[in-house]
Design a protein around this nucleic acid. Sequence first.
DNA 1: AACGAAAGGTGAAATAATGCATTTTTTAAT
DNA 2: ATTAAAAAATGCATTATTTCACCTTTCGTT
Lengths: 233, 233
Amino acid sequence: MSLPNHQRFFECDSCLFKTISCQYIQKEEFEKLQSKSVQLRYKKGEVILKQGAKSTHFLFLRKGIIKFNYEDDNGKNLILSINKAPALIGGANLVNAEFNLFSVCAIEDCEGCTIDVAMLTRIALGNTLYLFKMLQFITDVFRSSIFNFISLAHKQVNGRIADILIFLSQNIYLSNEFVLSLSRQEFAEFAGCSKENVIHTLRKFHNEGVITVEGKKILLNDPERLQRISKHG
Amino acid sequence: MSLPNHQRFFECDSCLFKTISCQYIQKEEFEKLQSKSVQLRYKKGEVILKQGAKSTHFLFLRKGIIKFNYEDDNGKNLILSINKAPALIGGANLVNAEFNLFSVCAIEDCEGCTIDVAMLTRIALGNTLYLFKMLQFITDVFRSSIFNFISLAHKQVNGRIADILIFLSQNIYLSNEFVLSLSRQEFAEFAGCSKENVIHTLRKFHNEGVITVEGKKILLNDPERLQRISKHG
DNA sequence: AACGAAAGGTGAAATAATGCATTTTTTAAT
DNA sequence: ATTAAAAAATGCATTATTTCACCTTTCGTT
């Protein structure tokens, strides 16, 4: 094996990050990135990037679902955003933060590989179209969280939970039926309310026939009614 | 006068945007930017950038205070962030949004000048250090709003209002005593609660001696107690 | 100076949300 | 298979928040 330092789980040739990168930069340059890169697997629950730590690398998430988590002074957690592969994680630090503002944790088993920030920056500085592409990748992650915040900021819990169900269905699981990757506690940290309130509200939606809840299995029976709750609740 | 198309209110030579720009790009290039640029004044309340409109220019805000405003489907407003000069406004669009995601409105009289996005992008693409500097400018505006959102998402109204008072004192007015630029209604749109709740809460803080409220004049008597309310309320 | 409109303010009833105690269910470990 | 621990669920008392009806002040206009 030509790579003694680490195990390889998957082939780089089928990787989206390589495909996209090679549209902008030379193969030789990508190989420089690749030589510094390590393939990693994370089990559900594992921390990928730790809030407050110095970040020396990004992670290109090839498979899996992650959460952005902020822990405040009192130890309370807040989930800022949930994202699925493919995504470039840790980019908030590219432009102006030396330490990770948030933690990133796997909420489903994940696969990805590290990208050396210094090397990526060097290459991107020499190729502005590539730089723009990377910035788009990075800000996508950011932007998706804004609309969750808007929901949080001026809707009541009914509306917020409806919004989260719609978000998960449309952006993460891509189906009206899914197995929730979040505990009720985590759901509450995403919705900005107590876990009891999440449970009560899901039960209410269930009893009203809008959704069907069976433990972690959720089915959106009436997405349009959910939209209406989102809009007026 | 060599500039027939528009009035000039202030000298470019004392402008921070010019000073910073000229650390990275040639004077001749800056003059290209300048030739496309128009000086503008906005009265308190005026809209600078309109949500949903196509943005062909940024605004370098030289003087004044602005709010980022989001209006939802139901016509409810939400203030995402408040910023003071100097700031580069509208930059959220540099990377990936064609239409303005938010409105920007003057909440104090403002002065600034337009920056042609196409021209700035062209110059920045040829000078990556300058590009990075501009991105820093832009994401600063963004980043300041994140921590307001965190406050919104998992504090109750006491804590949120304490946070806003601290924010305004430390980041906008740079003093423990200030004349609020926001109406009570706008304060509520920033805090994510009803205007009555803002009024009740300010009155309560006043009665407890933490702050002194006299119409729009606010004095933070006991910033440390406010910090404690922020942390536990 | 008088007027109307907008913003600020108040208190109380109705509604929403939290926190707690307790039970049930699920999950993981031996 | 048994047990312990964690997560989910429930109902209720307490607290927080909104909403409403109404009043007062401020401010710009005629």
